[in-house]
């Protein structure tokens, strides 16, 4: 079937199988930041923004995204660069495999709520699993970024 998706600012049209998942379409288009971590919508690794809202690309058909705008981390390098250094300073990136989904959801959080409390951060990002860091360092990194903006 024919689809048209605005991917990272570029309009793309494609002819796809109706059962193609968005994650597979995105990786096929070179968006390797979109990671596969489970089959059950539990890990958050494949988070992308559809019309600005975070969605799990493993649980959405590419066809569903037709006519919409999809942003992956490839298209949000500048916005992410504003805060990822604070996470690096904590050493919390670790293996890195969950980082893109986590960073994408953090971008969504900060767009929605530029000055979140710790509890708001934890609950917004609860769907982004990380097996390495124990999560506390991620919170410290985001907090350090938010504090730096207030200075």
């Amino acid at each position: 079937m024919e689809i048209g998706i605005k991917l990272n600012g570029r309009m793309l049209s494609d002819n796809i199988d109706a059962d193609l998942l968005l994650i597979d379409w995105l990786r096929d288009k070179g968006c390797f930041s979109v990671k596969r971590g489970c089959e059950t919508s539990n890990c958050g690794l494949c988070t992308v923004l559809m019309d600005g809202k975070p969605v799990l690309s493993c649980s959405m058909l590419a066809a569903r995204a037709s006519g919409h705008e999809i942003m992956t981390l490839e298209g949000l390098q500048e916005e992410a660069s504003e805060f990822v250094g604070f996470l690096a300073d904590q050493g919390t990136d670790q293996c890195g495999f969950c980082n893109p989904g986590f960073v994408m959801n953090t971008i969504a959080l900060l767009r929605e709520n530029p000055d979140p409390t710790d509890d708001e951060i934890l609950s917004y990002l609860a769907g982004n699993l990380c097996r390495c860091s124990g999560y506390n360092g991620q919170l410290r990194g985001i907090r350090a970024f938010l504090d730096s903006r207030k200075k």
Partner: peptide, 15 residues
């Protein structure tokens, strides 16, 4: 910082 931190945090294709 880890030498690979920024690459990993920006989702580069390294896996």
């Amino acid at each position: 910082r880890k030498k690979d931190s920024i690459q990993l945090l920006l989702g580069k294709p390294v896996y």
